[in-house]
Design a binder for these strands. Structure first.
Length: 887
RNA sequence: AGGCCCGUAGCUCAGUUGGUAGAGCACCACCUUGACACGGUGGGGGUCACUGGUUCGAGUCCAGCCGGGCCUACCA
């Protein structure tokens, strides 16, 4: 890094700067957190991206927000840990490698065999598994990479086994044969959450008749899935339905099999008003029917194979795909004269979240977690505020889910994942163990085979906050960082992940895994539509970063993260914040031309600095306080806009202009004092901004003159600490008047068509004290408002000129021949009209006895003062108008 | 069916105990002044979806209503 203050390039170019600094930070180990420290702990565990993932805006959001929090806390004196990791992503990864295998070698995973196939996936992981984390680095992420974990690594696998065995021993994991959601394409069971319910798919309600066995007639049922009738084992009617009362207890004859099917009464399931009021019951292929089957002791007939074809219980339809069978069954029923018509019907469709196949309710034996006992403490933890959701409204969502939670199907018929630590002997005894058992614990048989299934990927994710810290070992890191401070993630995985971490964390650690859960919104395109490859509206973070820099993207995402709102990302915005980085860059370029003069000995000497210096110091401390308050409340957009407003509007637009007279024309002493303030405020601004824009701030910071004790990187410098005395400095507020006068004069110049370059005489009318005050500060008016002479009213007074009032000081410029009097009159008339309206409004309020009597005195007082000022201004504008139109 | 969120300037959005409606971009006019045209200065633009209520006072609280989005739910 160059130490010289030589000219910086004119524009800020992020590309090389970002790469350079990231490498430097890594080398110096700034991202590391200590297992033990004097400093208070702050911890975030990163939501592990899928090993198959490539960077998208969702990642960019979490990286941005978590990195902001981590950098801010690190700078604020915390032992800040951001623990990174990667998820093995069961189905997704297996599918990718399977596809690759098929493509390159033309063989299926079955042909290769389980062991070899899993080896292939590991090879794939070694080659491509670090891509996603490398992409996170581009954004400036500062997690402690040395602690990076993979959900399938040795340590975490051990945690998973330990948890599984303990839960099994506690009776909270069990095995059962029941209906589950089955994906016929992926050949695996799915949890309820992995099924998407599609709204309003077009289908039809098909009606057909079952003939009564005794030949006395028929009963008509309705279905959206005619093929399931092959597995029907009852027809249900409502017990009070007069139409069918006499039929209850009779049987019907199945047209394709020899089965006799009973007609039963079930008041829970049957709605007499829907369809025909008679319902075919297929316990093996419908969740409701399964319950009916249990109530009435019906047989469950599975008619499907795992890949969604009709099995040999499908009679003449065996071998057909389920959708082919649907058509075939209908046709056959029609041929038999049993069809009774069909109606259009909107039906909900359940689809596999991964492959979008229509999911089938399927009878099979799976492993489950009994969640109710785990959910209760997790509910209570939130109720008593041990864990807080932000935005708060997610609390309801969490509660609603937890209060109505179903057992969690955790076994998956995949090869990639944590294999279930259960073994079966030839005597069919089950043994769940931490290590491979040598013999059956019940019958002593040594012929053992391990359960073929693996665990739901989310099972290991649920353990993330403590598995990554070394549990079940009682590590120092675990002691220091658990419970974690913040969980920052997307609301879409509140059930998948957050709720389950809560349950597991409390169960195994005795404490909820995080103090605060901050849920960010989804990133959409600028029109508010979900980004998707098919729509072609995906904005690639890497493209954006390349073009505008990581700082600009981060700042954009932060400034758009308002609580509870989707992030509608417009690339224009990013361009705007690149301009912001450039603005700071140029402010630094300017400053560096003068900072050699800065007096760096000791603290800032208030007796030597100017009003403007005091003013900006106050502003800086106020801005710092606001930014910190915003970050503490997770109001990222507020933090961003406040620091933006300070740096651009207050520091660049005002202070840099205000400090110029002294830098250019001041005495050496004045120069030294003001340059010091300029350095301090710029340097402080960089620290304030650093968590949001880490790169440009470091690049500039390194070029500034060091104060004694400054560290070697802004990353490890202290975050600004607002000083209450500075914030409350009354001198600073008095200076606001000068700012307003500058604005008023500039405005007058435009009104009077004074050419930009022309210097003017400023006439003013004020009490003696303020006159003196103003004249002493003439240098600023000279430079900022291009005033060449101050003329108090006593000497001359341009009677014909329009005037303006600023805090009781009346200002006038001499009128010139260039003025367009018609235009100016119109403008003044409009202004008068506006003021008039305001005055009417305020006077009406003040005239209301209720207001004066009941409103707080200070509010009334404020209004009175306001009315007075408005009236005075109105009078002035009217006078001006009269003078202008007369002349 | 139940729940949640949103509707404020042309666009994207702020607006935290109710007290003179804000920002960024876009737009108009002027300015290449010795940090920056990724810039400067000055402007225009809103009946805060709608209807009631509470209140001296409502963008802000309450009720209702319209419009948009999302989540949960086993209707054959």
């Amino acid at each position: 890094m160059s130490e010289s203050k030589t000219e910086l390039p004119k524009g800020y170019e992020p590309a090389d700067v970002e790469k350079r600094w990231y490498g430097h930070w890594m080398e110096r180990g700034y991202f590391r957190a200590a297992d033990e420290s004097e400093k208070p702990p702050f911890s975030i565990v990163m939501p592990p991206p899928n090993v198959t993932g490539s960077l998208h805006m969702g990642h960019a959001v979490f990286v941005t927000l978590q990195d902001i929090l981590t950098r801010w806390k690190r700078m604020s004196g915390f032992n800040a840990l951001w623990l990174p990791g990667v998820d093995h992503a069961g189905i997704a990864t297996q599918m990718i490698v399977e596809k690759e295998l098929q493509k390159t070698e033309g063989i299926s995973r079955h042909e290769l065999g389980r062991e070899k196939f899993v080896e292939r996936i590991w090879e794939w992981k070694e080659r491509y598994g670090s891509r996603i984390t490398e992409q996170l680095e581009v954004l400036g992420a500062s997690p402690d990479w040395e602690r990076e974990r993979f959900t399938l690594d040795e340590g975490l696998s051990k945690t998973v086994r330990e948890v599984f065995v303990r839960l099994y021993e506690e009776g909270l994991i069990y095995r059962a044969n029941r209906l589950i959601n089955w994906c016929p394409k992926d050949h695996t069971a799915l949890s309820d959450l992995e099924v998407d319910h599609e709204e309003g798919a077009k289908g039809e309600l098909f009606e057909f008749a079952y003939r009564l066995s005794d030949g006395s007639g028929e009963i008509v049922v309705a279905t959206t899935r005619p093929e399931t009738m092959l597995g029907d084992t009852a027809v249900a009617v409502h017990p009070d339905d007069e139409r069918y009362k006499a039929l209850i207890g009779k049987t019907v004859k199945h047209p394709f099999t020899d089965r006799e099917i009973p007609i039963i009464a079930d008041a829970i399931l049957v709605d007499p008003a829907f369809g025909t009021g008679a319902v075919k019951i297929t316990p093996a292929h419908d969740f409701n029917d399964f319950e009916v089957g249990k109530r009435h002791g019906l047989e469950s007939i599975n008619i499907l194979t795992p890949d969604g074809r009709l099995n040999d219980r499908g009679g003449p339809f065996a071998g057909l795909d389920r959708f082919e069978a649907r058509v075939a069954v209908k046709e056959r029923l029609e041929e038999l004269g049993l069809a009774r018509g069909e109606k259009d019907h909107i039906l909900p469709l359940a689809r596999c979240q991964r492959c979008h196949s229509v999911v089938e309710p399927y009878l099979s034996t799976q492993w489950y977690v009994k969640v109710a006992p785990l959910a209760q403490p997790a509910i209570e933890a939130v109720e008593r505020g041990e864990t807080v959701f932000i935005p708060e409204s997610w609390t309801n969502t969490y509660m609603a889910w937890m209060n109505n939670i179903h057992d969690w199907c955790i076994s998956r018929q995949l090869w990639w994942g944590h294999r279930i630590p259960a073994w079966y002997c030839d005597g069919d005894h089950v043994q769940v163990a931490r290590e491979v058992p040598s013999a059956c614990g019940i019958c002593g048989s040594t012929k053992l085979r391990q359960d073929e299934d693996v665990l739901d990927t989310w099972f290991s994710s649920a353990l993330w906050p403590f598995s990554t810290l070394g549990w079940p070992e009682e590590t120092r890191a675990l002691k220091t960082f658990y419970p974690t401070t913040v969980m920052e993630t997307g609301f879409d995985i509140i059930f998948f992940w957050v709720a389950r971490m809560m349950m597991m964390g409390i169960h195994f650690m005795g404490k909820a895994p995080f103090e605060t859960v901050f849920l960010h919104a989804m990133v959409r395109d600028e029109k508010g539509e979900k980004m998707s490859k098919t729509k072609g509206n995906v904005i690639d973070p890497l493209d954006v970063t390349e073009k505008y820099g990581a700082d600009a993207l981060r700042f954009t995402l932060a400034s758009m993260t308002a609580q509870g709102r989707d992030i509608k990302l417009a690339v224009d915005r990013v361009a705007g914040y690149k301009a912001f980085a450039n603005k700071i860059w140029n402010a630094a370029r300017f400053s560096l031309l003068h900072l050699d003069a800065a007096d760096m000995s000791g603290p800032v000497d208030d007796s030597r600095i100017s009003d403007a210096d005091r003013w900006i110091l106050t502003r800086f401390h106020r801005a710092s306080a606001d930014v910190i308050a915003a970050l503490e409340a997770f109001r990222f957009n507020e933090a961003a806009s406040r620091v933006y407003q300070f740096i651009w509007r207050e520091l660049c637009d005002w202070y840099i202009e205000l400090v110029k007279p002294r830098l250019y024309e001041g005495s050496a002493e004045e120069k030294a004092a003001s340059a010091r303030v300029l350095r301090d405020v710029l340097e402080g601004s960089l620290r304030l901004l650093h968590p949001l824009m880490p790169f440009v701030t470091e690049e500039i910071w390194q070029k500034l003159p060091r104060a004694p004790g400054d560290p070697e990187s802004i990353m490890i410098a202290a975050y600004p600490v607002p000083d209450p005395d500075r914030m409350a400095d009354p001198e600073s507020d008095r200076f606001d008047t000068l700012v307003e006068i500058v604005q008023a004069v500039r405005s007058l110049r435009v009104d009077l068509s004074v050419p930009d370059g022309a210097e003017v005489e400023l006439f003013f009318d004020a009490d003696p004290a303020r006159s003196a005050w103003l004249e002493e500060r003439g240098m600023w008016l000279e430079r900022l408002a291009k005033v060449k002479r101050f003329v108090p009213r006593a000497s001359e007074w341009p009677e014909e000129s329009p005037s303006v009032l600023v805090h009781g000081i009346e200002l006038r410029l001499p009128i010139t021949g260039l003025v367009d009097r018609v235009e100016l009159s119109a403008k003044l008339a409009k202004e008068a009209e506006k003021l008039q309206q305001e005055v009417i409004k305020i006077e009406k309020r003040l005239g209301n006895p209720g207001f004066v009597a009941k409103a707080p005195p200070e509010v009334v007082e404020k209004d009175r003062a306001l009315a007075e000022e408005m009236i005075a201004r109105l009078a002035k504008v009217r006078e001006n108008l009269e003078r202008i139109s007369k002349a």
